[in-house]
């Protein structure tokens, strides 16, 4: 395999693995920018993966090739609603946000598996879906030499959506009054409150957005990579998205960059044995790479990463 061929092989695969991470990491950016720690992303992704597959199986006959898109939409709505549970506990009930996130993770996985057993006659995994997300080439752009074949040939539609959401998230967070308020309640809720921003309402919205995006990520993952749902469908992608968000310094574009990098690492861990140059590297090394790099990033070797100031603290009116 020549170097160019290796690139043609690796880059699309890296984007595939990065796409669910981008969705979910952007969700994390919204939640944590508003001051709510969301380590429940993993559980939300699990629910998204399950709902995506189940909706796909149910609706496949009526919607044909459009099924995966509808399924992703349903997963996003379901997970947006599921995330309200985290919001109620963390914002209204002033629960420890990390503990509440752990509960969301436990509940998301257990609840999904419970429903699988209920809906599929006691089995541990769902049926395989018939309409998985398909690849297509972007007409015109895929004719560009090298770049066309690298980036625009045989792409997944939702990957384009993910990149679109990065731009939208950046615009919303940094160029609109809504985004300014959202970031303000995450940095200094009391100041925001004084200026007439409804702190808890902003945080609720942010957590629901994060749930919906994590749902998209989970539904994309289960409809491309696994094509069914079981206990082993989502194993750490949510935490990896959390890592991407931190690595990307709580910024949508940074999170995307980190997600792409982690996607590359996952690809190499999966297919490294068939690629020259790295086939002698043990796959365990490639598997731990994203996590070790995140620790190094946090330790300040790759620039200081600072969380939003009020991240993790419930806002109690009148308390200094």
């Amino acid at each position: 395999m020549s170097f160019i061929e290796v690139l043609y092989f690796i880059v699309p695969s890296a984007i595939l693995y990065a796409t669910p991470l981008i969705f979910t990491a952007i969700g994390g950016v919204f939640s944590e920018r508003s001051g709510v720690v969301n380590i429940g992303l993993e559980g939300l992704m699990v629910v998204g993966a399950f709902v995506g597959v189940y909706a796909n199986l149910q609706l496949g006959d009526s919607f044909g090739a459009n099924t995966p898109w509808i399924a992703m939409l349903i997963a996003a709505i379901t997970c947006g609603i599921f995330a309200i549970l985290h919001a109620v506990a963390a914002i209204t009930f002033r629960a420890d946000q990390v503990v509440s996130g752990v509960a969301i993770n436990l509940l998301g996985l257990a609840g999904s598996l419970f429903l699988v057993r209920l809906l599929f006659d006691g089995r541990g995994q769902t049926d395989m879906i018939e309409h998985s997300i398909t690849r297509f080439s972007i007409p015109g752009l895929d004719k560009i030499p090298f770049i066309g074949k690298l980036l625009f040939h045989e792409v997944y539609g939702p990957s384009l959506l993910a990149f679109g959401i990065v731009v939208i998230a950046w615009y919303v967070l940094y160029k609109t009054p809504f985004g300014l308020r959202l970031r303000a309640v995450g940095e200094h809720p009391m100041a925001a409150d004084t200026m007439g921003v409804n702190v808890n309402r902003m945080r609720y919205i942010a957590v629901i957005i994060s749930g919906a995006l994590a749902g998209l990520g989970g539904a994309f993952y289960s409809q491309t990579i696994t094509n069914d749902f079981s206990h082993a469908t989502i194993t750490g992608q949510g935490f990896m998205a959390l890592a991407a968000m931190i690595f990307g310094k709580w910024h949508p574009v940074g999170a995307m960059g980190a997600a792409l990098f982690f996607g590359l690492a996952q690809t190499l861990a999966q297919v490294g044995k068939t690629i020259p140059y790295i086939q002698d590297v043990p796959s365990a090394v490639l598997q731990v790479l994203p996590y070790v790099l995140t620790i190094l990033a946090l330790a300040g070797f790759i620039g200081k990463a600072t969380a939003p100031k009020a991240n993790g603290q419930p806002y109690i009116k009148g308390k200094r």
Binding site: V99, L107, A110, G111
Partner: peptide
């Protein structure tokens, strides 16, 4: 599952709910 036909995951759900309630002790 064997004795009552109930999926064992129900217990994990119960544990998660207990955690949510204890965390929301306020």
């Amino acid at each position: 599952p064997n004795a009552a036909g109930v999926p064992e995951e129900i217990v994990s759900i119960i544990i998660a709910v207990i955690v949510l309630f204890v965390a929301s002790g306020y």
